[in-house]
Design a protein around this nucleic acid. Structure first.
Lengths: 153, 153
DNA sequence: ACAATACCCGAGTGAATTGCTAAGATATAA
DNA sequence: TTATATCTTAGCAATTCACTCGGGTATTGT
């Protein structure tokens, strides 16, 4: 499978979507997220450590504690979540979004391939940065009402 | 690094580009490709076994043998090469380009994420399928003449 | 005939990554 | 003070990656 994401991105996005669906309800415990999304709670804790350090979620410790989105769902792009959990988007080291772009292209012909990797990178980033958590919540509502509609035909 | 390609795709594309630059000159030995592209010859052999079985290159055995592109450079898309060497393009198992799409989406909300992975997949495929080996050879010529132009300023 | 060349094939392997689990420390509400 | 949560570090089995090793087979020039 080419250009695959790891479970960090997959689980992390699912969990953040879960928080977005409950935005405004106060802190949500990882235990409940883990149960709904069928993900290991301990593993989720690790992902949320990254998300918290990146400023995407806020934590409340102690009983009745949990996590909330640090911003409104429409202010959080899917691309941000993926970058925090998986690192900069880059099909190849030499076209990483990070500043220190590494040393490649000692050979001239490498650069021809490089322009391809740049296009791939930008098209991926374009998709992920065009979708917010709010978009996902809205989409989920649409899918639900569509199901209902189908049912009554 | 998110959504990274392995060296199979990287080396394979470089090697196929090398053959494209020498298209019409008869069989090119892997040894020469490996030297020019600075890739292990044995490793390249493995990649070309896949490329040959997929019908992208033809082999000529024995002394003075080597590999040639099975089609003209403009008839070979970068996406084909990547798929042969890395498998179907799929940021997630459940949105693979292959027929047997696997079992995901037992949960409804998964499908919201799924539409995102589908968009990512299609945007990647769109880029890779829009570029042929001929495009790369032309691009290499442009880069060369640009260098020359810069030099004489 | 016989080297030399080059493709063909399968097994193995060390290093890195992945996807967790285990064990505990710390903070807060009831 | 107890139950509930977040935090933190360490470890680990399984898989994947990027090759290497050791052959075999086909073809060409001498």
């Amino acid at each position: 499978m080419a250009l695959k994401l790891s479970t960090r991105g997959e689980y992390g996005l699912r969990a953040m979507f879960d928080l977005a669906q409950r935005y405004g309800e106060g802190p949500i415990s990882l235990k409940s997220v883990a149960e709904r999304q069928d993900i290991s709670e301990h593993y989720l804790e690790q992902l949320f450590a990254s998300l918290r350090k990146a400023g995407l979620v806020r934590s409340v410790r102690g009983a009745q504690g949990g996590y909330t989105l640090a911003r409104e769902p429409r202010e959080i792009k899917v691309g941000e979540i993926i970058r925090v959990l998986e690192g900069p988007i880059a099909p190849m080291d030499c076209v990483s979004e990070e500043e220190g772009e590494g040393t490649c292209c000692a050979r001239a012909e490498t650069c021809v391939a490089r322009t391809i990797w740049e296009k791939v990178r930008d098209s991926i980033a374009g998709v992920l940065d065009s979708i917010t958590l709010e978009d996902m919540v809205e989409e989920a509502h649409k899918l639900q009402s569509k199901d209902k509609y189908m049912y009554y035909i």
